[in-house]
Simulated assay, not measured.
Amino acid sequence: MTESRRRRRGWLIASAATVAALATLAVLVWSGILWPGRMFAAGYETRGVDVSSYQGEIDWQVLASEGIDFAYIKSTEGSSYVDERFEANWAGANETELLVGAYHFMSFESAGQSQAEHVIDTVPRGADLAIAVDVEFYGDFFADPPSRADVDAILRPLLERLQAHYGSPPVIYATPEAYDRYIAGAYPDNPIWIRSVVLPPTLEDERDWTIWQYSHRDRLAGYEGDEAYIDMNVFRGSTAELAALAGE
């Protein structure tokens, strides 16, 4: 075998090994066995979950013992939908030592004022955590996202009405894509809850995040629903600082 053929064979073997290693890594990440964000998130002491009806019936005493400090519970969506597990989750979570709050999934298809009134009709005042508003793409809006002006016309009155009612600026949850398109450079008084499930988040406008959703494929004890996984989050600060965002 000539030297050039040896080099070519060695290159092919190395390339095949690299592809195999990357494929194995991808499978481990996809399955939730290996999740890089977990390593970085381990440096933060205040940890929590966010849940919805997808987690099914939750034994909150069990879940609260899983090394978490807070829980955000889906309450509402748009101007009329209430999560079917909200009432049970709200009652159960508030019987634990967890800090508890609610989040609203914002619709691009109804006015911000009507969405705010829907939240107010559903979520009691006096929660441990500031109310949160989830801004992300869904359905056909992935392919055809609304303009920033259209979203601002919904989001701004929604946030203002919720702040007036609950007494503190709502937390804005966003995916990186939604943040860059709709939030960056605006809403300076609203704490940012950002999703970044591989590496620590870096916001386009260099703003500091407040809550980081670092995983959507963790498994904890205490729930049994259609969704086997649960979202995990960390807060940049202490539990007292997290509670202070609610203005209580």
Rank of each mutant, 00 (worst) to 15 (best):
V82E: 15
H104D: 05
D208R: 14
A143W: 00
A93K: 10
T2M: 06
S238I: 02
H118E: 06
W212C: 03
E87L: 13
V49P: 05
I230L: 03
V123L: 03
T202V: 14
L99S: 13
N94G: 12
L158E: 11
A186Q: 10
L155C: 07
P157H: 10
D180V: 00
A178N: 05
G247Q: 09
E3Q: 11
A132F: 03
S168A: 15
I58T: 05
L159G: 04
A111C: 01
N89W: 08
E136R: 05
I154R: 14
L199S: 12
F86H: 12
A132G: 08
G237I: 14
W11K: 13
T175W: 01
A243Y: 10
G247T: 09
Y138W: 02
A42V: 01
Q115V: 09
W30C: 04
R125A: 14
E136N: 06
F105N: 11
T202C: 03
R161S: 13
V62Y: 03
E117W: 10
D69W: 04
D50S: 11
G43E: 13
D144N: 15
E227V: 12
A64S: 14
L12N: 06
F86W: 15
G37S: 06
A149I: 09
V123Q: 08
P188E: 06
G126C: 12
G67T: 06
A244P: 09
T2E: 08
I33P: 03
D150V: 09
N190L: 05
D152V: 09
V51F: 10
A64E: 02
G237H: 08
Q55L: 02
P145C: 07
P169H: 12
E177K: 14
S15A: 14
D226R: 13
T210K: 07
L220Q: 07
G37K: 14
A244D: 09
A14Q: 06
P191R: 10
D83N: 11
G56L: 11
P36Q: 07
Y138I: 00
I131H: 02
E241H: 00
P170M: 10
Y229R: 15
R207H: 01
D226Y: 08
S110H: 10
R9H: 00
I58Q: 09
Y229V: 12
A88I: 09
P169D: 12
A246W: 06
V29E: 13
D189I: 01
L220D: 10
S80D: 15
G78W: 10
W193T: 01
T46F: 12
R38E: 12
Y54M: 08
E84S: 15
P188G: 04
A127M: 14
E66N: 11
G101P: 14
R236G: 00
L245G: 07
Y187D: 00
L22I: 11
W212M: 05
A244N: 02
Y223D: 00
L203H: 09
V29P: 03
R8A: 15
E117A: 13
S65W: 01
G247C: 06
W212F: 05
D128N: 08
Y44E: 11
T24C: 13
M1C: 01
D152F: 05
S15M: 11
D83L: 05
L158N: 10
D134Y: 04
